[in-house]
Simulated assay, not measured.
Amino acid sequence: MEVDPPSNGNSMNLDEFYQVNIRDTNTTESTFKIPRRYVHLEFLNAGAQGTVVSADDLITGKKVAIKKLQQPFLMTMSAKRAYREFILLTTIKHPNIIRLLNAFTPDPSLATFEEVYLVMELMTHNLHEVVHKLKLDHKTLSFFVYQMLCAIKHLHNSGVIHRDLKPSNIVVNDKCVLKVLDFGLARKKNVDTAMRMSDYVVTRYYRAPEVILGLAYSEKVDIWSVGCIFAEMINHSVLFPGRDRIDQWTKIYTVLGTPSDEFVNRLGQSAAMYVRSLVRAPPKPMTEIIPDSNFLTETENPRVHLTAQVARNLVENMLIINPDRRYSVEDALNHAYVKLWFKDDEVNAPASENRYDQEIDFADKTLQEWKQLIYQEVQRFQRDHNIFRD
């Protein structure tokens, strides 16, 4: 659906909002109240976290994506998620992390505050679309994995674990530039990794074993997710498509093998009993998990280690059940399959200012208190930026 803002006589006053009704593919309507600088709105996608449209920005002359957060004040959990995403998008800056261009609310006071909009750079596709439509050559596979690793290294250096990496949360453009988005589940990195994911609802297929089995976690949950995504880019199918938590674990251990006693002994009593009760399974050969036939063999380049064997070695080291033995992001970035892209200013970019407050996130706040926090953050952004003209 394409809509132009109504004209006010011979000239248009850009310093105000106008309303557009957007219809998605299921003919559901969503109302956008946005500055007049954004025109030609077209529906892109909708999900649990919001509705996204493309638009032309009259000020910059560029196309942008505008995300309207989906009922951010319906429940405490959705309000906390909106708070996290807003704070992190306004503070985290890296070439492989989606860039926030603008943020606003059309609501003039806390009493009427209901809507939050995020304006971001527009990317052509999400990785899910690419993975299931195209067979990628070694160079592209390697470059995509490198960029994912650069993004999560920057997040980790800035004190953040993403926790919800999956193909639909990663976008790419026609130049194969990749960016990570959606920080609604991100959490502050805890040095002693003493947190457990009690409210962790990351897409099941990309969940690390320590999450499924109730262990404390570290930033290595993101490495597991990248390993799953990498395998999916090669195989064109989800590696561990579990129907529920138990089935997810079954899918993992029947492919990667029964975990070591070292790992099982760290589990809680009931989880350890369950894992020990299962029939022992040997690990499948990596050549069976990711066969040669799933690669574009003619694109191999042994001189720079772009081969099926080297790719499988990287996947294998990212998908180690015991997180203590799993690759770190630094290990992965120094692996031969991606090292050819290594640029210090991308890998070791200065950490972003991070105003995300873990204590606020864990605080037992009412829905109204969360609403007030988000309103204050949106107002702070609007004070620092001319949302109509910048």
Results as ranks from 00 to 15, higher is better:
residue 172 V to S: 13
residue 173 N to T: 04
residue 175 K to F: 07
residue 175 K to Q: 14
residue 175 K to L: 09
residue 176 C to E: 11
residue 177 V to C: 12
residue 178 L to F: 10
residue 179 K to I: 13
residue 180 V to F: 12
residue 182 D to E: 11
residue 182 D to F: 07
residue 183 F to P: 14
residue 183 F to A: 08
residue 184 G to S: 09
residue 184 G to C: 05
residue 184 G to E: 09
residue 185 L to P: 11
residue 186 A to L: 05
residue 188 K to Q: 14
residue 188 K to E: 15
residue 189 K to R: 09
residue 189 K to H: 11
residue 189 K to S: 14
residue 189 K to M: 13
residue 190 N to S: 10
residue 192 D to K: 09
residue 192 D to L: 15
residue 192 D to A: 12
residue 193 T to Y: 12
residue 194 A to V: 07
residue 194 A to N: 13
residue 194 A to W: 04
residue 195 M to Q: 11
residue 195 M to G: 08
residue 195 M to A: 10
residue 196 R to A: 10
residue 196 R to L: 13
residue 197 M to R: 07
residue 198 S to K: 01
residue 198 S to W: 02
residue 199 D to G: 05
residue 200 Y to S: 08
residue 201 V to Y: 04
residue 202 V to H: 00
residue 202 V to T: 06
residue 202 V to D: 03
residue 203 T to F: 01
residue 205 Y to F: 11
residue 205 Y to Q: 05
residue 206 Y to F: 12
residue 206 Y to R: 01
residue 207 R to L: 00
residue 207 R to I: 03
residue 207 R to S: 01
residue 208 A to F: 00
residue 208 A to D: 07
residue 209 P to A: 00
residue 209 P to H: 00
residue 210 E to T: 07
residue 210 E to Q: 03
residue 211 V to I: 14
residue 212 I to M: 03
residue 212 I to D: 00
residue 212 I to V: 13
residue 215 L to F: 07
residue 215 L to G: 09
residue 216 A to P: 10
residue 216 A to H: 09
residue 216 A to Y: 05
residue 217 Y to A: 06
residue 218 S to P: 10
residue 219 E to V: 04
residue 219 E to R: 02
residue 220 K to C: 11
residue 221 V to W: 14
residue 221 V to T: 05
residue 221 V to C: 10
residue 222 D to G: 11
residue 223 I to L: 15
residue 224 W to A: 08
residue 224 W to L: 09
residue 225 S to C: 10
residue 225 S to I: 07
residue 226 V to K: 02
residue 227 G to Y: 14
residue 227 G to C: 08
residue 227 G to E: 15
residue 227 G to V: 05
residue 227 G to M: 08
residue 228 C to Q: 08
residue 229 I to C: 07
residue 231 A to G: 09
residue 234 I to N: 08
residue 234 I to T: 08
residue 234 I to Y: 05
residue 235 N to W: 00
residue 235 N to I: 02
residue 236 H to R: 15
residue 237 S to G: 06
residue 238 V to H: 00
residue 238 V to M: 01
residue 238 V to P: 03
residue 238 V to N: 01
residue 238 V to S: 04
residue 239 L to N: 00
